[in-house]
Design a protein around this nucleic acid. Structure first.
Length: 785
DNA sequence: TTAGGGTTCG
């Protein structure tokens, strides 16, 4: 058994507690100390039966022993728990469990003299805002997605088991516990009664659906479902027959946990419950449901960005709230952004400046990127309550195309009244992976960029326009200044193209010319892979090929003898579909411990493209592998040897000599493995290919025309070629840049000037000799991109 | 009690 397991068994949970909580020493559990944001941790040495106090309140008492000072004369303290928290806690607590308690009230213990324990006791209840984390003795660990599978599978939990009913086995009039995958949901909305309501349709591997209607006066008590495909666990849901079908409805004591449904994502429950059980079975069930869903349900892909909005359709948007304003009695304005630019003109809802809530400077800075979403009727009350800066997911926004005066149409965003099709709004916590991604993206958005480029993509219906549009102003500017700048050789003077064409190669020139046309016009076709060793260029393989090779490699089952080595932990499961595909994931360890998901490199056998893609959202690096008799190995070099973030890294077939995966263990053993692609490539014997833009510019200056090649990793467009294929924002940025260099439909006179360095060189083969030109040491002017 | 899934008044 690996050594790190003992660390957990001996009562040292590795789980990250909420970061604001600080550990409190046993000896500091005294009156006069401030225990706000403090927690105490101890082992349950005695637990008394659950009882009722005179007023009917449930009461549960345990004794916690301080493990930091085990041999002190006084090292235990009474913990008194009241109400529902007592009931919940009593169900799961056993001697030997570790308790972490926070938000407690400290009082003098009247029984200290008799029981010889601490002279204070701690009182906890849900009403007082207390929190209890219960760690089971056998290595269960809240929040820890790794959960040391092989360890847990070999032990049975000591806690009482809940029974879960499959959805095809529900009976009218019963109260049951169940699991399900969210097939449809309405985010909580204000009902016409006194409560919030959320409607959730679940499905499970029995392929039976169940629609549940959930009510609660407390928004937080309803399941925290963020997207279709999430997995829920409901406890104590009442089953009734309605219109000939089974229906779920909240009953007293209803509680829920929600999990991300993505294969390989951390199994972290989302819940507002202060106490909940979370055992080895949960981990397994969630993983099984994820695997079943991945092969049997079609879970929608990533949601649209504003840059990808389709007119006349409905879409879900993950965004940040920048401003809000009342409009009238039945509608309310949310001003939001997601860092991308909507390619269509969008409306601005006229509101009085004094009614607009939000940071004025921020609203102004983001004015070109924010969109106005008007929400109606039942959504108004909820919308009013949102904090500026919070992250929202707005479900089923209507992108309505409206033709206004002079046939100029614009897009309006409405969240219509009602809850059809899950129409609604939810707040996402900052811990949500989509929010983390969005936040990082928003921070990377350079506002100066969009201010200049704004006019290229849309004519805002904005009263700030004067006689000249920004577009015209830009053109005027371009006619005088160059849209490119030189990064070196400033002393060189210009040479006209005719002189260059009449000269011998090789030479270098500074030129001033206009871009008459360029190839390829479809910019994504300009991205190639380059091997700096053999200087070969190749096309970027498409996903279909990747998928085919993955399917081929999935035919061979993972070799169990290669599982769980000193440097990685392995998990394996079988898909429930007809293919019965076996998937194995090997999580690489560092210093015998698993790292946080965002730092983790994993290897996957038998996964599909979709599964690999999902894993890359959560984990730092994913390497598709296959097993042979003795080793884990890379697949064919037609597929990436590494997927990191959104980028697929390929190796040169000609120059690489792939080594078995165990070569990676040398990086894993390093002080702080950074998992740099170049380093990974090196130990795996891979000569990495670099993404590069290859374009042909036809340049003219009135004296002649020549074709010059652009060979650019990043410098010219200031966009990494490696990211362009997966980042729609960068694609849009590049398209805008090209539109600026070579505005479509313009006469030659109206084109902007480009200052460039070009070098001439000879290309000779048996048949002919040719002089070619390449652009170098040139970049797009800062105020253009 | 409320809602009981299946796009819109604006």
């Amino acid at each position: 058994m690996p050594v790190q397991l003992l660390k957990i068994v001996k009562g040292k949970p590795e789980t990250p507690l909420p970061s604001h909580l600080q550990k409190e020493d046993f000896k500091h559990l005294q009156e006069g100390f401030d225990h706000t944001n403090k927690y105490f941790e101890g082992i349950v040495v005695v637990s008394y039966p659950l009882t009722k106090l005179g007023d009917g309140t449930d009461f549960f008492k345990v004794v916690l022993q301080d493990m930091d000072d085990f041999y002190s004369r006084i090292n235990s303290i009474n913990i008194l728990i009241y109400g529902k928290m007592a009931e919940d806690c009593a169900k799961v607590t056993r001697s030997g469990d570790t308790f972490v308690v926070a938000g407690f009230k400290l009082e003098k213990s009247p029984t200290a003299r008799e029981d010889g324990r601490h002279d204070c006791h701690l009182k906890l209840s849900e009403e007082a805002g207390s929190t209890i984390f219960v760690y089971k003795i056998l290595g269960e660990c809240l929040n820890n997605f790794f959960l040391f599978h092989d360890f847990i599978i070999s032990f049975q939990s000591v806690a009482p088991k809940y029974l879960y009913t499959p959805l095809n086995d529900l009976k009218d009039g019963t109260v049951v516990n169940l699991y399900g995958i969210v097939k449809f949901f309405k985010p909580p909305y204000v009902s016409k009664g006194t409560d919030y309501c959320s409607v959730v349709t679940l499905v499970d591997p029995s392929n039976v659906k169940l629609t549940c209607t959930l009510f609660n006066g407390n928004l937080d008590a309803l399941p925290k479902i963020y997207k279709v495909g999430d997995i829920v666990r409901f406890h104590r849901i009442k089953i009734r027959e309605y219109n000939g079908q089974m229906q779920g409805i909240t009953s007293g004591g209803f509680s829920s946990l929600t999990f991300d449904g993505t294969v390989g994502a951390p199994v972290v429950p989302r819940t507002s419950s202060k106490v909940y059980t979370f055992m080895d079975e949960e981990q397994k069930v969630i993983e099984e449901l994820r695997a079943w869903a991945a092969s049997n349900l079609s879970i929608p892909g990533p949601a649209a960005k504003l840059s990808g909005v389709q007119p006349m359709l409905f879409f879900d948007l993950t965004c940040q709230l920048v401003g809000k304003a009342k409009v009238d009695g039945s509608s309310f304005l949310l001003k939001v952004w997601d860092g991308t630019k909507c390619p269509y003109p969008t409306w601005k809802v006229p509101v009085e400046a004094r009614d607009m809530e939000g940071d004025k400077v921020h609203l102004y800075q983001l004015r070109k990127l924010t969109v106005d979403i008007l929400v109606y009727d039942n959504h108004v009350q909820l919308a009013k309550s949102f904090q500026i800066g919070s992250f929202l997911r707005i479900y089923s926004i209507h992108a309505k195309q409206v033709s206004a005066h002079q046939d100029v149409s614009h897009l309006e965003f409405h969240l219509h009244g009602g809850t059809c099709y899950g129409r609604g709004i939810g707040v996402l916590p900052e811990s949500n992976p989509d929010v983390k991604e969005l936040k990082a993206f928003l921070e990377s958005v350079d506002l100066a960029d969009t201010q200049n480029n704004e006019s290229m993509s849309s004519l805002e219906l904005d009263s700030t326009f004067n006689n000249l549009t920004d577009h015209e102003l830009d053109l005027e500017r371009c006619q005088q200044l160059s849209v490119t700048v030189l990064t070196d050789h400033q002393d060189l003077s210009n040479t006209d193209l005719k002189t260059i064409l009449n000269s011998t190669a090789p030479q270098q020139y500074r030129i001033r010319a206009k871009l008459r046309t360029y190839k390829p016009q479809k910019l994504y076709q300009s991205v190639k892979l380059h091997c700096s060793k053999c200087n070969s260029l190749s096309e970027v393989p498409d996903g279909d090929n990747f998928d085919l090779i993955l399917q081929g490699s999935a035919i061979t089952a993972p070799n169990l003898e290669l599982h769980n080595t000193s440097w990685y932990d392995s998990v394996m499961w079988t898909t429930q579909d007809q293919k019965q595909r076996k998937i194995a994931i090997h999580f690489v360890k560092h210093d015998e411990m698993l790292q946080q998901p965002e730092d983790t490199l994993l290897m996957i056998e038998g996964g599909t493209l979709k599964e690999i893609w999902k894993l890359t959202k959560r984990f730092k690096c994913v390497i598709p592998v296959r097993s042979t008799d003795n080793n884990l190995e890379l697949l064919d070099l037609s597929v990436p040897f590494l997927v990191q973030g959104g980028t697929k890294y390929y190796g040169c077939k000609q120059c690489s000599s792939p080594k078995p995966m165990k070569s990676l263990s040398s990086i894993a053993a390093k002080q702080e493995p950074s998992w740099e692609p170049t380093e990974i490539a090196q130990v795996l014997g891979i000569e990495p290919l670099q993404y590069v833009f290859i374009m042909k510019f036809t340049l003219v200056d009135g004296t002649g025309a020549l074709n010059a090649y652009l060979f650019d990793y990043e410098k010219f467009f200031q966009i990494p070629a490696s990211e362009i294929l997966t980042n729609s924002f960068l694609q849009e940025k590049m398209q805008m840049t090209m539109n600026m260099l070579c505005p479509p439909g313009r006469k030659l006179d109206d084109l902007p000037w480009l200052e460039c360095f070009i070098r001439s060189y000879n290309v000779r083969n048996e048949m002919k000799h040719q002089v070619c030109y390449q652009i170098f040491d040139t970049t797009i002017a800062e105020d253009v991109v």
